[in-house]
Amino acid sequence: MNSEIKSLKGTAIPKISNDQNTDDIIPARYLKEITFKNMGKYVYFDERFKNGIEIKEHQFNNAKFKGASILIAGANYGCGSSREHAPQALHRFGIKAIIAESFAEIFAGNCASLGVVGVTLPAKEIAALAQQVEKEPKTELSISLQDKTISFAGKKLGFEIPEGKRQSFLNGTWDAMAVLKNSEQEIEKVAEKLDYLKYE
């Protein structure tokens, strides 16, 4: 199974306010659903819709950012509850990477377990990046986990990412399912040797 993530390319959505919490990202009433399938539709729901009417200017509705796979955010992104639904919502909306000033810890862990790459840049650089994307929404960003850089419009910025996380993306071990499945032979061996599984 190939789960390695070495680099990512795509356009971006700039949404750089600080302390965006998991309730903003996915309102609590959607936690009752029995699958994560629809979570992408509900991302930022209460900001995106007022009385059922779409707020056209909201970054996640705005036509000029359509198809973007990278989110640019501010400080303490994803604070609040531990709900797995928040990164699921972003992930299912199509977000593959988040560039922020900083992340809330549990959220960062939940993102990593879905293969959503989170990297950090200083506030000034976040602002510059957001400005570029606002002006030229079609700007393609290229994130390299190998040399920890973001390239765009002829510029290159170095980013931060916890080394353990970076390694887990590079070697595919962020995907616990894939890691467990890798032990196929050992699983069969233990199943074979556990007598009690065969008692009649």
Partner: peptide, 17 residues
């Protein structure tokens, strides 16, 4: 008896009976 493998994360993979 249930250990399957030592994982790169440092955790142990165990079999569930």
């Amino acid at each position: 008896k249930h250990v399957v493998a030592k994982l790169p994360t440092g955790q142990t993979q165990v079999f569930v009976g």
